[in-house]
Amino acid sequence: MTQTRHFDDVKRIVVKIGTSSLLHPNGKLNLAAIDQLSYTLSSLNNTDKEVILVSSGAIGVGMGQFGLTHRPTAIPEQQALASVGQSQLMTVYQQRFATYGTKISQVLLTYDVFEYTGSLKNTLNTFQTLLNWKVIPIVNENDTVAIDELGHTTKFGDNDQLSALVAAIVDADLLIILSDIDGFFDKNPQKYPDASLIQTVNHIDDAVYQIAGGSGSDFGTGGMYTKLKAAQRMMKHGKKAVLANGSDPKIILDILAGKQVGTLFDPN
């Protein structure tokens, strides 16, 4: 039985888009996808939805700038690539969102922001002010400084977790995770042609996690496991999440219209 989806009461939305949706397999920017994302989020902004975008891609874009096909293992090289890539990524976002008359901002975070009350309060105040001004914050991990060492954690590990943490602190109604897969399947669809899309998940337990695989593309870090963790975090707060294919970001409009696309994670 198909569960009817209702998002009429959704006001505040966090959208996370993965590296694979922003880059072509050759590492070059997917300008068409970025344009459609900018158009879609601007459309929501014009209908008084409050939107926060969590965007991966900094290291991947940096790799593309240098013609690299595999992520370096050295931390300083990864951080340098992130510095180069983040600049270009924000430049493209600025150009495309401006085309649709939408203001954006950049918010770079490290994990310790969520650990310290003062930092968290300042971050929340910034988010709220930007949303009040109808600005779309574009969030990414501050890869240039985020590392795990000496027991002091500054790194989120992946932007799926970052998006869920941001959604939790701003009390978002919905988290939409756009990736390179149509949703959550009962088995890996890249290996098994008979894999079936699971349209609705109401509970995430060990059996569900066992279905999840490893990380995704050479340019990104996330896999299905991290997406399930992000969805589970939303469900623990009584909120919904949707995992869908980000090849055409206009799918966000289909999701909010209640169409049966992707996988809905709904604790209710």
Rank of each mutant, 00 (worst) to 15 (best):
L89E: 06
E50R: 15
K49G: 02
V15Q: 01
A58T: 04
I181R: 05
K155C: 05
D48L: 15
D186W: 04
A164N: 01
I34M: 15
G246Y: 08
D148A: 14
I13M: 03
E115T: 13
I52Y: 00
I138V: 13
K121G: 00
V15R: 01
L178A: 04
F66Y: 09
V145C: 05
T4D: 03
K134L: 00
T40Q: 03
L243E: 01
I176D: 04
I198F: 07
V54W: 08
G213A: 15
Q232I: 01
V139K: 02
L89N: 09
S196T: 12
T99N: 10
G183M: 10
F185G: 06
D205Y: 11
L165K: 14
H152N: 09
Y209G: 03
V84C: 13
Q94L: 08
I104Y: 08
N202P: 01
Y111W: 11
L175E: 05
E77L: 15
A98Q: 14
D205W: 07
L120K: 15
K250T: 13
R5E: 03
P267F: 05
W133T: 05
L131Y: 05
A244F: 08
L197K: 15
P72R: 03
G151E: 02
A32Y: 11
K227W: 10
F156Q: 04
V208Q: 04
A207E: 13
I104G: 08
K240Q: 13
E50W: 13
L175V: 08
L228H: 10
D254C: 01
I177H: 02
W133K: 14
N132Y: 05
H237L: 15
